[in-house]
Nucleic acid binder design. Structure first.
Length: 855
RNA sequence: GCCCGCUUGGCGGAAUUGGUAGACGCAAGGGACUUAAAAUCCCUCGGCCGCUCAGGCCAUCCCGGUUCGAGUCCGGGAGCGGGCACCA
């Protein structure tokens, strides 16, 4: 029997679907809509297995919902601005636009070879002027609405390249290309006021019940609402005060120092005539801007010489330090340290020999003898050594401390968020130009709407480091739109997260030039019913998009707050890693099993060290090219492999054996459907009057499978759905006999199997459908339904336990009375033996499930 | 450092609300077919004892708890992974 020809068959059906425009979406108020979208890819070159997994998952949902009668929108686009294009420009001397567009062309073909049910007519690419023009328009709206503003902010600075570095370009505190120690620079940049929506973004998480709990929790922690107090410390010998935010005002009596950020105004002022402090601040400014770098760095400080006066203890002076772990962006950029009850403060106090006074004791400890050594006590307890707070618990202590601060005029209760405003300025070429003109007379002037888009110049050079827009001979020179005098364009471009925060709205209608998106179409399609992508986007992209949607509403563009009704986060695709004797990474293609089964180099035969399985990445070379897999086995095989074993939210291990197994199943199905010796009823054959034992069991299994697979697909249990379908096809393969009822049930079973497998392996399913003699397209066929009456089992197997251990099973008619079940169970030989003839103390009967005899 | 997750046979995993642990598959071993190989088909397959049957003991990362009953709930711990605001 011939093998299934995946290549020809897949191309054939792709052409048919394309010719008939099967997946072109249209607004249709008469049907329920379903908007399914996967996170659009960055065009890095070729598709990788992560893409294959992502778009397979989305396509299963799209095709399934479509079969269930939904009006489905399933679009695709390109997140095509970004740093890698500039890196390619520098390394390979190719223009970012050329590099990007060529990548898109390759990846579009690759995606098309997967047979995805996409509406390609809505394709968009964020790096094209028709798209970023609309983004610029939105930016100007935000400026107008007060949602975008300028402020000074710190960036990583490479002093050799004279350019800004992304955090990922800072390796161990040094520039990735120059190796020079990274410094921090203060630049005036644009920010979006995401913090204006802190509370709303936090509260609305509760309504996102089709989002994974872990993502909601991560966003909650990211927003980081904390209640506490502002304490305005008087400063000895000065009129101004030090504004400090704390979540622990109850520990004020244990304060032994204050600390400010290196870029706090007081630090700057005190450093003016203090070279040692200057040096320390300069050292702080050499640290990367990433929170990780700051948190893991050794905690260090430098005394400013200032003294803060304790608000509750007359004459108590607290030294004010500059400390490298205090962030200017959080709270007021200043803290007070209570070493006994904060680990970081404790480490700091020990290092600088500052007092450690415990002011909260564990409830069951002796207050007089309580002290801390190396571990701060951070739990609730009883307040001690704190005058008017003594004896209170932490909650009451906070309240009482705040009341007293207010009374004295030294502070007030306060809520702070960890969330910071979103800096969108990037000192790079390959992004949307920020549509602003700087005029010496008029200040900051928005580019008039009629002048949009502000196009990126094509003739740029990466010969010198830094932002090519800055170095361009003419681009930034422009006349002020207000006064007409010579002015300068903003040379910063927008963060690419800006582009990806609203693209789903533009998918809703044919792309117009005069508006970012069409209101009526957005009203129809949005919100996205199912969004699918990697967990790595849990906070940034997904939070920015939520904020953006609110901002768009504030500007009158749309009527909703939340862009994504359902979210699914997929796991990564992993593969074993291999290294040769020199420690160099090897591609899986370069490794073959040797005679002893141990991995060997395919060409040299040298021993290869097998490493653990990790996320596929170019740097470790543990990648398998999807194009090669699709070329060899076909897209359906790759798709079913992506779906069959691992639950979609977990990591998936790619193995050669696994893809072979998937390919064998494809061919098993092909043989099952094209077996000329097996009986197959005519298409319109009526149901026989009676079914024999095997046919009846198969008929019930068909209904059971429809019910199970539908439920599994609804809940993203795709691996289970595959298992259920395998069970059905195994059963159909074992159906014996040539009788009429077998032939009839066989047709029902095959037809159902083709329909159930269609969302996962659409080409094969379509081919099998036609092998059964159907003329219409499976892709236009409604999802099969099951008869609930067929699911009821007449008898059940009941587990019988003695003291919680399984001793026997009991087949009984469904819903047998408790007493009868108990009597039967106790009479069982195994139960008699296990109870040793003793009378049971208690018998627990769970109907149709289990009996537990307790002796 | 902080936040979040994951951990079940040789492997991927299954096990609605606590109720028969290991569905479905991969790998492996044995057999059939074949001149041979591939493909295909059949059988075995968590460990140990018994080993023909019957059966018994152990087993869901580790330690403890709740319960008639825990992979599932609670407390503590270990290992691995993701994110940390300019990678996308």
């Amino acid at each position: 029997m011939s093998r299934y020809n995946a290549k020809e068959t897949e191309a054939k059906w792709q052409t048919v679907w394309d010719d008939r425009q099967c997946f072109a979406a249209q607004e249709d108020p008469s049907r329920p809509k379903y908007y399914v979208m996967e996170m659009f890819p960055y065009p890095s070159g070729r598709i990788h297995m992560g893409h294959v997994r992502n778009y397979t998952l989305g396509d299963v949902v799209a095709r399934y919902k479509r079969a269930r009668g939904y009006n489905v929108l399933h679009p695709m686009g390109w997140d095509s601005f970004g740093l890698p294009a500039e890196n390619a420009a520098i390394e390979n001397n190719v223009h970012p636009a050329k590099w990007t567009r060529e990548n898109i062309a390759v990846m579009r073909d690759q995606l098309k070879s997967m047979g995805l049910s996409l509406d390609w007519s809505r394709e968009l690419s964020t790096c094209e002027p028709d798209y970023y023009k609309q983004g610029q328009r939105l930016f100007l709206d935000f400026v107008e609405a007060g949602l975008a503003y300028r402020k000074e902010s710190w960036v990583n600075w490479d002093p050799v390249e004279n350019s800004v570095l992304a955090n990922e370009q800072v390796i161990d505190g040094r520039g990735w290309r120059t190796g020079a120690p990274v410094e921090k620079r203060l630049l005036s940049q644009w920010f979006l006021k995401i913090t204006e929506y802190s509370d709303d973004l936090l509260a609305a998480l509760g309504s996102l019940d089709r989002w994974p709990d872990k993502v909601r929790l991560m966003q909650q922690n990211w927003i980081g609402r904390s209640e506490g107090a502002r304490v305005n410390f008087k400063l000895k010998g000065r009129q101004d005060r030090l504004d400090v935010f704390t979540t622990r005002p109850d520990t004020l009596f244990g304060a032994s120092f204050c600390a400010v950020a290196a870029n706090h105004p007081l630090a700057q002022e005190m450093a003016a005539d203090n070279p040692a402090l200057q040096a320390f601040i300069a050292e702080c400014n050499r640290m990367s801007t990433s929170e990780e770098a700051i948190e893991t760095a050794e905690k260090r400080g430098h005394d400013t010489g200032l003294k803060a006066l304790h608000p509750f203890i007359d004459g108590r002076e607290l030294p004010v330090y500059v400390a490298n772990f205090v962030l200017m962006d959080y709270g007021s950029g200043a803290i007070f340290g209570c070493p006994a009850h904060d680990q970081r403060d404790l480490d700091f106090a020990r290092k600088y020999k500052l007092p450690v006074v415990p002011v909260v004791a564990p409830k069951d400890a002796d207050p007089a003898g309580f002290d801390v050594a190396d571990v701060a006590f951070v739990d609730d307890g009883v307040i001690i050594n704190s005058e008017f707070l003594d004896g209170l618990n932490v909650t009451a202590g906070k309240r009482a401390a705040i009341d007293r601060l207010v009374e004295q005029g030294d502070g007030e209760s306060s809520i702070r968020y960890r969330l910071r405003d979103w800096g969108v300025s990037r000192q790079r070429y390959w992004g949307s130009p920020i549509p602003i003109i700087h005029c010496d007379s008029c200040g900051i002037v928005p580019v008039p709407a009629a002048d949009l888009p502000v196009l990126l110049p094509d003739d740029i050079s990466f010969d010198q480091p830094g932002n090519p827009l800055e170095h361009h001979p003419t681009w930034k020179n422009v006349d002020c739109p207000v006064c007409g005098k010579a002015a300068r364009r903003e040379t910063d471009t927008l963060d690419t997260f800006f582009d990806s925060s609203w693209y789903f709205n533009r998918f809703c209608a044919p792309h117009a030039d005069d508006t970012p998106f069409t209101r009526s179409a957005v009203d129809y399609w949005m919100p996205v019913d199912q969004y699918i992508g990697g967990i790595e986007h849990a906070v940034l992209h997904l939070l920015y998009a939520r904020f953006f949607t609110r901002a768009l509403r504030q500007c009158g563009y749309i009527g909703i707050d939340e862009p994504f009704d359902g979210l699914f986060t997929q796991g990564m695709v992993c593969h074993e890693t291999y290294r040769d004797a020199d420690g160099q990474w090897l591609f899986p293609d370069d490794v073959r099993p040797g005679d002893d089964g141990a991995p060997r180099h395919a060409k040299t035969g040298a021993v290869v060290e097998r490493g653990r399985s990790e996320k596929m990445s170019k740097s470790k070379k543990n990648v398998v090219d999807p194009a090669a897999i699709i070329d060899t086995y076909g897209a359906d095989t790759a798709r079913i492999y992506m779906l069959s074993d691992s639950p979609p939210d977990r990591d998936l291990e790619w193995t050669e054996a696994g893809i072979e197994g998937a390919w064998r199943y494809v061919n098993r199905l092909w043989r099952l459907f094209t077996d000329k010796d097996a009986p197959l009823a005519a298409i319109d054959a009526p149901m026989p009057n009676s079914l024999g034992e095997h046919a009846d069991a198969a008929w019930k299994a068909i209904h059971r499978t429809i019910a199970d697979v539908s439920g599994d697909l609804d809940r993203f249990h795709f691996n289970r759905a595959v298992a259920r379908i395998r069970e059905l096809t195994n059963l159909l393969g074992d159906l014996k006999g040539l009788s009429e009822d077998v032939a009839w049930v066989r047709r029902q079973g095959l037809q159902t199997a083709a329909q159930l497998i269609a969302p996962m392996m659409p080409h094969l399913a379509e081919e099998l459908w036609h092998a059964l003699g159907y003329e219409d397209l499976l892709v236009d066929t409604a999802w099969p339904t099951h008869d609930p009456a067929m699911l009821a089992e007449e008898s059940v197997t009941i587990a019988v336990q003695v003291n919680g251990k399984l001793r026997a099973t009991l087949d009984m008619p469904r819903d047998t009375a408790r007493e009868a079940v108990e009597t039967e169970a106790l009479a069982l030989e195994n139960v008699q033996r296990a109870t040793d003839g003793k009378a049971p103390r208690k018998v627990i009967v769970v109907p149709n499930k289990i009996v537990n005899v307790v002796v």
